[in-house]
């Protein structure tokens, strides 16, 4: 199928839909109740100009990256342990499976109590959400390394630590990277949820630097600006997409033999 059609057709349909939407809202005078495409664009320009958007994005992303790093630091070692010691796998796996099913956002009440409202509570939620993909994928990766490699290294006199560093880690890398991709997606998703939940609970005075989640709560409940809300959604969508395709390309570059 020609690239012209492959790109042109969906674009054309989206554009047509937007135009129809704009006309419909204007004709029925429902702007303010229903998002208006031109209003969304206007919000976007306004919020970028006065810096609100960028600041919110920056603070959300900062928490995401820190939470991601914490999740990696905790998750990878646990995953390695589970993947290489079968006893740990049998004992810890059910517990982890159970914990995994609890929405990270459910921990918000406890997290707020323990860590205060500054932003650390959101951080906890992000780290919690992101740690499981790391654990799961790292343990799976470690398990897939053929026994023979272990035996070879052991017979050459390698210590447990050396084994870990030079056999397990490199072999596990591609899978761990996939885990990192999923973890990043979860992290970004949960920061929105965490900030949403915190934003709803806590009054404006106590809040620290507002992230996108809090901005969305503000727009939804306080200012009731539907256009800005849709704009934030679109920004979230774009960031999600960029993060995911960025990591996918990085994976293709760094580890070309793992192309799916």
């Amino acid at each position: 199928m020609k690239p012209a059609i492959r790109i042109g057709l969906p674009t054309a349909i989206v554009v047509i839909l937007l135009v129809v939407w704009e006309i419909a809202v204007r004709l029925t005078h429902t702007q303010g109740l229903v998002p208006l495409p031109s209003g969304v664009v206007r919000s976007g320009i306004a919020l970028t100009e006065d810096g609100t958007l960028m600041q919110a994005l920056a603070s959300s992303l900062e928490r995401v990256i820190i939470g991601f790093a914490i999740a990696a630091a905790i998750g990878i070692p646990i995953g390695l342990a589970i993947g290489t010691v079968p006893l740990l796998d049998r004992t810890l796996r059910p517990v982890l499976d159970g914990l995994r099913g609890v929405a990270p956002i459910a921990w918000i009440p406890m997290a707020i109590l323990w860590l205060g409202v500054r932003g650390d509570a959101a951080l906890f939620v992000v780290a919690y959400a992101a740690v499981f993909p790391f654990i799961l994928n790292t343990s799976e990766a470690a398990r897939r390394i053929p026994r023979s490699l272990f035996h070879a290294a052991e017979s050459l006199g390698a210590s447990r630590l050396l084994l870990l560093r030079s056999v397990v880690l490199p072999g596990a890398l591609p899978f761990v990277f996939t885990g990192a991709r999923i973890a990043m997606a979860f992290a970004w998703g949960s920061i929105i949820a965490a900030e949403l939940a915190i934003g709803i609970k806590v009054s404006t005075a106590k809040r620290a630097v507002a992230g996108i989640g809090q901005m969305m709560v503000d727009t939804l409940y306080v200012r009731r600006d539907v256009d800005a809300l849709v704009l934030y959604m679109i920004v979230i969508g774009i960031v999600s997409f960029l993060i995911d395709s960025g990591l996918r390309h990085a994976q293709a570059r760094l580890m070309p033999w793992t192309q799916q």
Partner: peptide, 28 residues
Amino acid sequence: QLVAVVIDPIAEFLRPISAIAWIPIAIL
């Protein structure tokens, strides 16, 4: 095939967006 051509890019764009991000719009 034509349906796939239209739906694929939309799905590709929406897929990485976590469901939780839709909460405000859902409430709306």
